[in-house]
């Protein structure tokens, strides 16, 4: 068997997160387990043998042979439209992983954590929040979650009642809820102030967002080696 084998993954559950994003729960016999923040590669193969693959972050901590991915539709994409519009419960794809040992949070870490999400970059950070809950960890967590509009937030119901020790702030870049104090706009240094710099930061989102957020944190005095980043490309899907 190769070192990182492709495994058959059967779709067992679908949850709608927003108008354009769904959580897909796969059952993968032989799954070796994973850490919060890791990702997987998903491979689709057409009947004529053509195949293509994309990486997706896992959205939930290890749970036997169940692996949850939250996938946002990329309208001109090659893989996400298939996963979201064609694939049905009971259908199979191939998944390999988990991969990535850098952008991970381990439940035995007690250091305070700052999570900074841009759009669907919240997915691996949600895995960390859920892993913290599953482990009964009391490590202080703060999530700063930037989206275009209020209805584009993933996991809204679950984050409406945060776990003790988890603080959440939303940033809206285009449109805010009524009466929202902060005007719509991209993340600024002011959005990231207030936290101690003695924290571990995880920043995930589109490349431009990650660059901006990481630069703000460094300007605020955070040590670069305590800022872990993961970028999504502008293409793919």
């Amino acid at each position: 068997m190769p070192r990182l084998p492709w495994r058959v993954a059967k779709l067992v559950e679908i949850r709608q997160e927003t108008a354009t994003a769904r959580t897909l729960v796969f059952q993968i016999p032989g799954w070796p387990g994973h850490l919060a923040g890791q990702h997987v590669d998903v491979r689709l193969t057409a009947p004529d043998g053509y195949s293509t693959e994309r990486s997706y972050s896992v959205a939930a901590p290890e749970q036997g042979d169940r692996v949850e991915l939250t996938v946002e539709l990329v309208p001109d994409g090659e893989v996400s439209p298939y996963l979201l519009e064609i694939l049905e419960v009971g259908d199979e794809v191939e998944i390999r992983g988990p991969v990535g040992g850098w952008f991970v949070w381990r439940p035995d870490h007690t250091t305070p954590v700052l999570l900074v999400a841009g759009g669907s970059g919240v997915v691996p950070l949600m895995a960390m929040i859920r892993a913290r809950r599953a482990a009964g960890s009391s490590a202080p967590f703060r999530l700063i979650y930037s989206v275009r509009e209020p209805d584009q937030r993933f996991y809204l119901d679950e984050l409406a009642n945060p776990d003790p020790g988890l603080d959440i702030a939303y940033l809206f870049t285009r449109k805010t809820p009524d009466g929202w104090a902060r005007p719509p706009g991209r993340i600024t240094q002011a959005d990231l102030t207030g936290a101690s710099t003695d924290i571990d930061s995880y920043v995930c989102g589109p490349t431009g967002f990650v660059e901006a957020a990481a630069d703000h944190l460094i300007a605020l005095g955070h040590a670069p080696d305590r800022i872990r980043t993961e970028r999504f490309g502008p293409t793919g899907g």
């Binding site: 070192r3 990182l4 990702h39 590669d41 990486s55 390999r96 992983g97 991969v99 990535g100 040992g101 850098w102 952008f103 490349t207 980043t229 993961e230 970028r231 999504f232 490309g233 502008p234 293409t235």
Partner: peptide, 13 residues
Amino acid sequence: DYLDGNALAGPLG
């Protein structure tokens, strides 16, 4: 238009 080294985890794995 780039990703980061996290994207190497699968291919190097």
